[in-house]
């Protein structure tokens, strides 16, 4: 997991409060979908853990939501031509077994970004069925990136774009037709809880990518733990961020 002095190529808004950051690193690094990077914001002690959305040779794209002072500074004060410190690739990423061929992807809000990486990685190997939820029409972003695979259902909470309702509701309506061998998911905790209820007793492995506040990002500081069913604290940055949904407590 090298440290890079990355060159910002682009840092632009793609929806209200959501930005796409593309940067170049000095070498080609193999990045698996679901892996993330720690992005330094000049003047802030902690780097921000951001899921990789696209990895194209030396060019890496991450998307982020402005949540606090650090992400606001990243969005408003830094642009193409500047350099930022980045550590990548980090975490385990999404791994599918060869026999898992029909894959449902369920994403909500900023949780769709790591799933874009999964769509890109698996599009020629698997049958992909996507259920992507946003708050409303204005929040929908990168929909052209989502349009690959067998099916895409876009959902909005208010019905202003696509289907009215949540991604989990749309997925559940389709589950018996699609008969997925596995589910990849990322989104807010209430969404993941709903997904857990929806898939309980169905014997479908659900791989979720978790979000947590981090400090080191490499597994040393034990800041970003999640509870596992076996009573052990797993490190989201190192043992995850992707876990089987039935192995963790939400």
């Amino acid at each position: 997991m090298p440290e890079f002095d990355a060159l910002i190529l682009e840092n632009k808004p793609i929806a209200p409060g959501i930005y796409s950051l593309m940067f170049a690193i000095q070498e080609r690094v193999a990045v698996r979908c679901g892996q993330f990077c720690m992005v330094g914001v000049p003047g802030f002690p902690l780097k921000r853990p951001l899921a990789v959305c696209k990895a194209e040779e030396e060019r890496i794209t991450v998307c982020y939501q402005v949540r606090g002072a650090g992400t606001r500074a990243l969005a408003e004060e830094h642009s193409a031509g500047e350099r930022i410190s980045v550590t990548l690739p980090l975490g385990n990423g999404f791994c599918l077994k060869p026999e898992e061929k029909r894959i449902a992807l369920v994403g909500g809000g900023v949780g769709v970004f790591p799933l874009i990486a999964a769509l890109r990685e698996f599009q020629n190997q698997k049958q992909l069925f996507s259920y992507m939820g946003f708050r409303n029409r204005e929040a929908v972003c990168l929909s052209h990136e989502l349009e690959c695979g067998e099916k895409l259902v876009l959902c909005t909470d208010d019905g202003s774009c696509g289907v009215r309702g949540t991604a989990v509701q749309a997925f559940l309506a389709d589950i018996d037709d699609v008969r997925p061998d596995a589910v990849l998911a990322c989104g807010p905790t209430p969404m993941l809880r709903a997904l857990k209820r929806a898939t309980e007793g169905r014997d479908i492995p659900v791989y979720v990518s978790l979000e947590e506040r981090m400090a080191c990002g490499i597994g040393a500081c034990l800041v970003c733990v999640c509870d596992k069913k076996d009573g052990i604290h797993a490190r989201v940055c190192r043992d995850g961020p992707v876990f089987r949904l039935d192995e963790i407590e939400l």
Partner: peptide, 24 residues
């Protein structure tokens, strides 16, 4: 020791706050 619940980390200008709770 399992340590404290999360969030265990916060940031303020020029400093961080941690409450890992001696997980080891």
């Amino acid at each position: 020791r399992l340590g404290n619940p999360t969030p265990r980390i916060a940031e303020s200008r020029g400093v961080i706050l941690n409450a890992v709770g001696l997980q080891n």
